[in-house]
Design a protein around this nucleic acid. Structure first.
Lengths: 220, 220
DNA sequence: GTCTATATTGTGATAGAC
DNA sequence: GTCTATCACAATATAGAC
């Protein structure tokens, strides 16, 4: 964001650069409280600076939340989209998407909750979520993904090795199965009776089992 | 909530009872803005009353949001849980859950976004979401659902008609596939290039196709 | 029960010293 | 660049008339 200058100095409280520290703190607090529930005060405290500094670096809360969302959005889909538009075999794509996405979300388990919550209340940010993928415009991302998958499905169905399925359903099924358990984590944990460690192991097992589950559903 | 009296009078602006009208308005606004983004002012306007009345009926914003969440929570899972703990065949359960849940969510498409957003920022409300099901305590809901499903899976695997799967994974897969498309609706619509009507038709097709998809994944 | 003030606190944002 | 002090207004909540 409108960064007034680029000096970086050593020896700060916990060096990282003030701007980056503020951004990290904002990320933490926005995830914890949601964008409208977050307080600039709390972010400042989390970053170990005064709240006036947040305005110095990011001008306004809206701008700061925009910066945080931009960074978070780049984590959720890009890798997955890259796989889906590649020229790998469809089975490889499915396995890779599950492996990549679950592994990433194990590192950032609260990301889906934050992103989906943002989308629900600021749908206009959706375009950014999708396009942050590859720099393509969102409409093209969708067309390319669906086009690539459709072509592969068609070939497989013709060869008699796939049960027919709409590419739209396939893609959404894949995203659903990967992202939902994190987005609904509190519900999942309570329903299954899992503490934090058990939830993590649940996902690790899932990462191993989901590809086979999904591929069985595609057999003729 | 602490209702001062129970008189109902006819001939109100659009009769329904003031308290109910406020609750509906609050529901609308909380879904639109999220709990912390919602303003009592906006709710009052939506209900066609003065904001002092909201406090008269519900005492505080927190209490009002609690009442709204309670009502919304009762929509998402109870029906599904009832099916899963019943003594129907497992195939029937899967078909029924998909049918029931997608049909319900077609009527209330923004419910999942609201609920998941709430859970992300108020995880303590999760217990209420799960227990509103049957009045059972949340832990028992989970145990009973998993127990019932596990027994059915075991029998089928033994009979050679099912591929082995953890009941936990099966249940979460089912919920994921039903709820996620709504929870991530803006993302889904953009990715697939759907307007509102097309999204609805996408779900209608999904309701027809998903049972078969899911059951194929369970074959040995 | 419903309204019009109004009290009170919370919160984003700016000014200005260092 | 970073802080302290403060402004201005938004937002919840209450008092009291009708």
């Amino acid at each position: 964001m409108v960064k007034p200058s680029s000096q970086r100095r050593r020896g700060a409280v916990q060096d990282l650069g003030t701007e980056a520290r503020i951004l990290d703190a904002a990320h933490t607090v926005f995830i914890r409280r949601g964008t409208s529930g977050a307080r600039m005060q709390e972010i400042a405290k989390e970053a170990g600076v005064n709240s006036a500094l947040l305005h110095y670096y990011f001008r306004s809360k809206a701008k700061l939340s925009e910066a945080v969302f931009r960074r978070a959005a780049a984590e959720l889909l890009p890798a997955v989209i890259a796989v889906l538009v590649s020229d790998r075999e469809i089975e490889d794509k499915i396995e890779a998407v599950i492996e990549i996405e679950l592994t990433k979300l194990l590192q950032a388990p609260y990301l889906p909750g934050y992103i989906l919550s943002e989308l629900a209340h600021h749908p206009e940010r959706t375009r950014q979520l999708v396009s942050s993928a590859t720099g393509m415009i969102p409409e093209d991302v969708g067309r390319r993904v669906l086009g690539a998958v459709r072509k592969q499905i068609t070939a497989r169905v013709r060869a008699g090795t796939f049960h027919p399925i709409e590419p739209e359903q396939l893609v959404i099924n894949l995203l659903s199965l990967c992202i939902f358990p994190f987005a609904a984590r509190p519900m999942v944990s309570l329903l299954l009776g899992l503490d934090d460690g058990e939830f993590e192991r649940f996902i690790v097992r899932r990462r191993r089992q989901l590809p086979a589950f999904f591929l069985r559903a595609l057999r003729p």
